[in-house]
Computed example of a mutant assay.
Amino acid sequence: MTTALLQLTADSTDHWDGPPWPFFPIFPILWLLVVGTFIYVVSRRWRGGRHDAVGTVRDLYARGEISADEMRQRLDTLKANRR
Rank of each mutant, 00 (worst) to 15 (best):
T9P: 00
T37D: 08
T37H: 07
G36N: 05
I66F: 06
R83N: 09
D76G: 03
V34R: 01
D59Q: 10
P20A: 09
G49W: 04
L60N: 06
R45I: 09
I29R: 03
D17N: 15
G49F: 07
R47N: 11
R74W: 04
S12R: 11
D52M: 09
A62T: 08
T3N: 12
G18S: 05
G49H: 11
V34H: 00
T77M: 11
G18F: 04
P20K: 04
V42A: 07
D69W: 02
Q73C: 11
R82Y: 06
D11Y: 05
P22A: 15
L75P: 00
M1C: 08
R44V: 08
M1G: 10
A4M: 01
D14A: 13
V41L: 13
G18E: 04
V54N: 01
R44F: 08
S12G: 08
L6G: 13
D14S: 15
G18V: 05
R82L: 08
D59W: 03
M1Y: 10
R72C: 08
M71K: 11
H15P: 06
N81Q: 15
T77I: 05
W46T: 01
W21C: 03
I66A: 07
T77E: 15
R45N: 04
F27E: 08
L33N: 01
M1K: 08
T56A: 07
T2E: 09
D17S: 14
P20D: 06
T2F: 08
A80G: 00
I26P: 00
A4T: 02
H15G: 10
L6T: 12
W31R: 06
D69L: 09
Q7M: 04
S43C: 10
R82I: 03
P25I: 01
A62V: 02
T37K: 06
I66M: 07
D59H: 07
D76T: 08
V35E: 12
Q73H: 13
P22V: 15
I39N: 06
A68R: 13
